[in-house]
Nucleic acid binder design. Structure first.
Lengths: 192, 192
DNA sequence: ACCTCGATAGATCGATCGGTCTATGTCGTC
DNA sequence: GACGACATAGACCGATCGATCTATCGAGGT
């Protein structure tokens, strides 16, 4: 536990928000989970809880973007997507479907935390750009690649939500199947 | 305003939860919005707020299912999906992206409201079955129709979340485009 | 006229919320 | 050793949470 209070708070915020949502995550929960003092929240984050949530969303978005970059760097786009779905599948199973995507939680935080919504929008845009570049490298024109990338983000996020609700990985299986078919169809031009 | 307190509470719960989420919707908000007495919540819903949220989720799921049935009854599956996306597009625009899907909100309500999560799972399953029947009627085998239907639900829900976060209808445009292509490809067998 | 039951209004409860405060402790740096 | 910056612990604030309570009102049935 050599990390400072700031990093511990961000990690705890990500962990708790992805389980309970922004509004249901209280300051007391954050302090207990991170082992920090109450004042540290206001020492490191302007705006108190709102600032912490915003920064946690930003960090979570960047971490997932790095993960995306790693996957796309070592596999073809379809293989990277399948690896991503597989990662979510094991994550949901191992946590008994308790955890979701922290960015989605931030996106639905509500009007009292507009900065969280903006940070979530940034994260979505970052992922879309990352995926679109990979799809464009696979031969798609820019707009088609962007549209497909945005759709992939939507489909995966929706599948995670549905999987948590139904406590089943089947939505992830369906997403893998349909996205593999869809993206694969775009990237490997039909051998007319 | 001839509706009784029970119906008013359910309607208000749907309206407020889809905007703010379950946990951020307080009892005071519900009472003010519905114009009911505090005791009416406990008169009509066992478990208080939890019971109300559960029933509101159930009702919202059934209403959307009826809407789905109407769309599928008067159009081919692809046309119905496009109409559904169009409805969400105008709804989000008219409300300045303030409202989302109440079932998603219930699905992410957290561990303190397990009944809401179950009701959300029921709603997702109902929609999936409804769509799967339409896809099967279009020629798909049962499992392919079910998988495609579940994926459509995921993709649309994810697009709504992303649209609210980015305050743009573009995720809905992308979903319409990709789903039209995907579902259309399945249902109209290639003219080999 | 009487009674009952649901609806309403509002006081009240303990618990918890986010935020601010003081006091103490613990470093590294002069 | 002295200092300043940060971390910690915890009291404290007003506000709000969901829930329970009493009291009043009104429509319908007998």
């Amino acid at each position: 536990m050599t990390a400072g209070p700031r990093d511990r708070l961000i990690d705890s915020a990500i962990a708790l928000i992805r389980e309970r949502g922004v509004h249901a995550t209280g300051l007391a929960d954050l302090l207990e989970h991170s082992g920090t003092a109450r004042a540290s929240v206001y020492q490191h984050f302007a705006g108190g809880k709102s600032g912490l949530v915003e920064e946690a969303t930003r960090v979570a978005g960047l971490r997932m973007d790095e993960f995306l970059a790693t996957l796309l760097g070592s596999r073809d786009p379809v293989g990277a997507l399948r690896s991503l779905v597989r990662w979510w599948r094991t994550t949901l199973r191992e946590t008994d479907f308790a955890v979701g995507c922290p960015v989605v939680a931030a996106a639905l935080a509500g009007a009292d935390t507009p900065s969280a919504r903006e940070a979530a929008a940034q994260a979505f845009a970052t992922w879309e750009r990352r995926l679109a570049r990979a799809f464009a490298a696979g031969g798609l024109d820019g707009e088609s690649a962007r549209s497909l990338a945005g759709f992939v983000v939507s489909a995966l996020e929706g599948a995670i939500v549905q999987a948590r609700a139904t406590r089943s990985v089947r939505p992830l299986d369906d997403a893998e199947r349909q996205l593999t078919w869809l993206v694969g169809g775009y990237l490997t031009p039909p051998a007319t």
